[in-house]
């Protein structure tokens, strides 16, 4: 699989990272190089192998249905780049 600049731009857009045309030009061969190297996994026969689900055998615990957190609006908003009246704010979204 080969990654061209259009693909790089598409992936960057999915990842919400603004890149210039020059960035895309630079990244395409770089990513190709890495992806080409990764593709050596194709050599491995995994036809009868299950994908790993948990690295160390362990069971998902379920917690009790109890309210333990809340009423901390100031703490939640403390690091916000922009907020007012107890809300985070973002550029107006047109839905």
């Amino acid at each position: 699989m080969s990654v061209d600049t259009a693909t790089v731009k598409k992936v960057a857009s999915l990842a919400r990272i603004a890149i210039s045309d020059a960035d895309a030009e630079r990244l395409a061969p770089e990513l190709n190089n890495i992806l080409g190297w990764i593709e050596q996994l194709g050599e491995v026969d995994t036809s009868s192998v299950e994908p790993m689900t948990a690295v160390i055998p362990n069971k998902l615990r379920l917690r009790e249905d109890v309210v333990t957190e809340g009423n901390q609006r100031d703490a939640v908003l403390q690091n916000a780049p922009q907020g007012e009246h107890g809300f985070f704010t973002v550029p107006k979204v047109v839905e």
Binding site: Q82, E84, H85, F87, F88, T89, V90, P91, K92, V93, V94, E95
Partner: peptide, 10 residues
């Protein structure tokens, strides 16, 4: 969307 002219509130 209706609380502010240029911002949406979260």
């Amino acid at each position: 969307h209706d609380q502010h002219p240029t911002r949406s509130y979260v």
